[in-house]
Amino acid sequence: MYEHLVVFRFNEQYEPSREQDLVQALLALKKQIPGIVELTAGVNVTEEQENVHGYTLGLRVTFENQEALRAYGPHPAHQKFVSLLEGILENVVVVDYPI
């Protein structure tokens, strides 16, 4: 299995009222993309403010295998989510590792 971790930092064009829409769009990917074992997403609520660095949304996806992870990026459902970030994404951090 493979773990895929993502944190998102948004620019000044981002409207915080969209947070739940983005979270719901991420959660929907589990049913839309084959090979996902588990998927969680949510708004950052850490109390460790010195570590936030403006990252407000997080995603964790567990894939069956490396092939499923590789197929995820170009999948049309994932690309549809990516299109929601156009104009509002400042930075993203991605970490993938086998588990």
Rank of each mutant, 00 (worst) to 15 (best):
M1L: 12
M1N: 13
M1H: 12
Y2T: 00
Y2M: 12
E3V: 13
E3D: 11
L5G: 06
L5Q: 09
V6S: 02
V6T: 00
V7K: 00
V7E: 06
R9P: 08
F10L: 04
F10V: 01
E12R: 15
E12G: 13
Q13E: 10
Q13P: 07
Q13D: 14
P16N: 04
P16T: 02
P16L: 01
S17I: 05
S17C: 10
E19M: 14
E19I: 11
Q20I: 13
Q20W: 03
D21R: 14
Q24M: 14
L26H: 08
L26P: 05
L27Q: 09
L27A: 01
L27D: 07
A28T: 07
L29P: 14
K30P: 14
K30Q: 15
P34E: 04
P34M: 01
G35C: 05
G35D: 07
I36F: 08
V37E: 15
V37G: 06
L39S: 03
L39Y: 09
T40H: 07
A41L: 06
A41V: 07
N44T: 01
T46K: 07
T46E: 07
E47A: 11
E47M: 11
E47C: 00
E47P: 02
E47V: 11
E47F: 09
E47S: 12
Q49Y: 12
E50M: 09
E50I: 13
N51S: 12
N51C: 13
G54A: 00
Y55V: 09
T56R: 15
T56M: 09
T56C: 10
L57W: 05
L57V: 00
L57H: 01
G58V: 00
G58F: 04
G58T: 04
L59M: 05
V61K: 05
T62R: 14
F63G: 01
N65D: 11
E67T: 15
E67M: 14
E67P: 11
L69C: 01
L69T: 02
A71P: 06
Y72C: 09
G73P: 03
P74C: 07
P74K: 13
H75A: 08
P76R: 06
P76M: 00
P76A: 00
A77Y: 01
H78I: 12
H78E: 08
H78T: 07
H78K: 12
Q79R: 04
K80G: 14
K80S: 14
K80D: 14
F81C: 04
F81I: 03
S83K: 15
L84C: 13
L84T: 03
L85C: 02
E86F: 10
E86G: 12
G87N: 00
I88L: 10
L89W: 03
L89V: 06
L89T: 03
E90R: 15
E90T: 08
N91F: 02
V92G: 04
V93F: 14
V93N: 04
V93H: 09
V93R: 13
V94E: 00
V94L: 12
V95W: 08
V95A: 13
D96W: 14
D96R: 14
D96T: 10
Y97Q: 05
Y97I: 09
I99F: 12
I99Y: 14
